[in-house]
Amino acid sequence: MTVWHLDPEAIRRYAQGIAPPGLAASAEAHLMKCVTCRDAIASHVDTRRVEAIWHEVVDRVDAPRPSWPERMLARLGVGEATARLVAATPTLRGPWLLGIAGVLALSVWAAQVDERLLRMLLVAAPLGPLAGVAFAFAGGLDPTREIGLAAPYSGLRLLLIRTAAVLAVTVPIVAAAGLALPGSHWLAAAWLLPTAGLTCAALVLTARMTPVVAVGVVATAWVLVTTPTAMAGHLDVAFGVGAQIFWLAVAVGGGLWLAVTRNTVTIKLGRSG
């Protein structure tokens, strides 16, 4: 049993957090054993400060450690809330990405054998990232779509976050496949601006239709226009300098439109908007 007690000045300084380290450590050890001093210090304690500290402790102890993709995003400067939204994007899950990589690997192998397949691969390359964007909002793939539709979170913001995340992951996969193609390496990059333009066009269309339908419209138009020319060997029509400038303009125009209308446009993530 302890026989001495902290003097009132020591109690005051400790309670206010201004005690020197030696006194603080000594007071802390004593308070663990002395009921009298604990009672004495109670009236000096700033309860709001204690509650704030306790909250912080509980939050640190109780909140689960973020998953590794969230931790990686946090290291890249992405906010923890945005990182959680990205982690919930259905088309960033392993099976989906493995599927895309598998299809591309097969396509690259086929393109080594037949030059026509090489051209078709160029036509199909932008469809991978586009499909990723569409399926990020598809009812069958997003298990929480219904809950998300009834939430007040900005549809445009969610659309842009998921689109950026899908592009950031799928574009390098498709680019790696492009580098494995036979022939000139300009082919590996030729589809990038069309992909950017098609994605922006699809995003703009989401003001009128759901992402799945918007991507379907854009992808169908792309395939219908580019397939005949690519198969005829006229890659310049879809991938030449003029086409690249056109897709750059579409991407910039779409991006500007979204930026200008961000506070007024209603994105149709579901049937009611």
Partner: peptide, 21 residues
Amino acid sequence: AGFHRGFTVFEFVDYVAILKQ
């Protein structure tokens, strides 16, 4: 009601809380 099955209970409810702004 679907869930992101890889999330923990806390993470999932927290995810919806983010959607609720």
